[in-house]
Design a protein around this nucleic acid. Structure first.
Lengths: 197, 197, 197, 197
DNA sequence: CATGAATGAGCGTTCATTCAT
DNA sequence: CATGAATGAACGCTCATTCAT
């Protein structure tokens, strides 16, 4: 009844996506049942189909929700004029904190998206590639600026940054007390200077 | 009737474990069916129960198969007298090459072991912890020797080494043409010196 | 507010009956869903219940619509004073053309009325019997008049006329280009003189 | 354990086809549930899938069972050297008695085969066409021989014979006491000489 | 008069598992 | 040692129907 009234439906649907994300994250796509998702949402099993065409579509929506603004943040980081080290720190911060803020959906994107049929995955693939390419661009620029060693392979570097963040993401999701800031600092430090003295 | 007959069963069982590993790796534990595993092995669905008490037991055996000698190799690496850099290189080599040699079972250990009930997981947990602790020990030693910076958290370091290797493991399993030696070199280089100049 | 408003509802309801008839005719009673009917009518699924108490009631109304004026026409044919051959021709014409004009509802009456529970079917049964009995009366009269052979069983004859018309009705519904007049002529010719020279 | 032992499986499967035929005949394809079919067969619902890939496949098998030897009998009738009237009588006898002997499967073929997707229907269509064409051939021959009137359209004639038999088939299935021989005689008489004196 | 959200039962199907042979 | 037949529970999904708005 208030001004925008932007839709009771959209609100409930967003809740449904979160419920699905939580179930998929903890049991895997095939291990989670629509009954469980519905129970978490507090509705009957069949009512889910008012919001999702199919379980597969629910997975797709969770993945999109998980990766979408995470990619947007990467774009903003790549575009701003900060030095390489700040960009790297921002990237890791953004990535790791996504595991907290988006309700496990990013973990679902990482672990379960392969169960989508190729057609449905295409959209996701583009988003994922965009992310990696932005990161590669940051490394290429840093190499050109001389702040990253010339013998570094920017593709390997980008993939590895993503890999480290995702590996720690699993711990973040499972251990709510983990200190994100400390972790971010350690990861960035490793990426820049390695462990050797 | 004794020796060879025993090994005949063991051979078949090893085949069964590999078949299960392959199915679990590509479809996930819940997504893979006993029918698929049986089909891959070339037997009837019911015949699987001659080798495994249950699907869950099959998962356990695959995980054990995936992690067992991989931990043993870690022990040998930790125990020999080589310098830190050589140990790190050996660790990464061992970890990454496992993804090729043990028929995707290590991937199953990484991605699916959480679907085992806690009792069955205990054994695995010990193996995994042993691995991590050996690695931590290597870092502790290296810090004491002054070849790794004193401010490095050896727990973080070990976990990160494992995380990087597992992240690249996914690519290794999916891309058969990936150059393992080159990848190992790049990973070790990053871990030692970072990307910065 | 009175006369036109009443007919507005009736118009919409007539459309609803036709939509239901079309769906029942092409998919069968159990194969057609209320969602499909609503979509064809251009309303929401729930809105159908303004016109029908239940899906079963919809079937009943379609059947009644399909058979009602078709029986009335039979009554008129039986009552007028024309000779047997003209009456037979008129009967076949009326029956076959119903398959075009009443939007497949007669087909629904023929094929789906058995899915109604006996109470709801009673009404229909009387109409169907009335039709058959009129037709039997026409044959009885023709036998008495000597234009139909005395050894003809009028019950068999009436049932067979109905059967032939319904059999061709299926073709009429499915093939829109079928020449109804030619078909009527051939059917009447067979019924009167058979195929033998 | 006896001589041919032609397969316990085949026996049970034949029973399954009959159970499905009975359910489809009385409730229609969409109205019959696999649970009902299983109950009639005396097994659990899921066990049906040992014999049928799907409900649709069950329908296909019932249709094939319903029409197969019925077509073969038509071929034999068409091929033997008897006069037209005998062939016509044999055709009607064969057709009508099928409704008794093949456990309602022919009725299912007539009423429900349209619910099969086109690919699955192709096989059936050929059998049905073969039947009709044999019958047309019989009429063509009879016209050439002068025993059927020259102005008779053999396509119409064949279709009508089939239509009449199917129309009476419904009664035969529903009324077990109906005198098949008497009915056959009346049908043949109509087809040859019509009702007119 | 009509909607949109929800229901609960039932559907066809697949599953891991058992067991007589 | 392995099969083939069967089970019963659970699955994802669709259905006819209801009702506050």
């Amino acid at each position: 009844m208030n001004a925008p009234s932007r839709s009771r439906y959209d609100e409930q649907k967003a809740e449904a996506v979160k419920a699905a994300a939580a179930e998929f994250a903890s049991k895997g796509y095939h291990g989670a049942s629509t009954k469980d998702i519905a129970a978490r949402l507090g509705v009957q099993q069949g009512s889910l189909y008012y919001y999702f065409r199919s379980k597969e579509d629910a997975l797709l929506e969770v993945c999109l929700y998980g990766i979408r603004d995470y990619v947007q943040r990467m774009e903003r980081i790549a575009a701003d004029g900060q030095p390489f080290e700040a960009k790297l720190f921002a990237t890791v911060t953004s990535h790791l904190s996504s595991y907290r803020s988006t309700n496990e959906a990013l973990k679902v994107y990482n672990d379960e998206r392969l169960y989508l049929p190729p057609e449905k995955r295409r959209n996701l693939k583009e988003l994922g590639s965009a992310y990696r390419e932005h990161l590669e661009g940051i490394f290429d620029q840093a190499i050109a600026d001389g702040v990253v060693r010339a013998d570094v392979d920017s593709h390997f570097a980008a993939q590895t940054v993503i890999g480290i963040c995702n590996a720690w993401g699993d711990h973040i999701v499972r251990e709510p007390d983990l200190d994100l800031f400390d972790l971010t600092r350690k990861c960035t430090d490793l990426l820049l200077h390695g462990f050797a003295r």
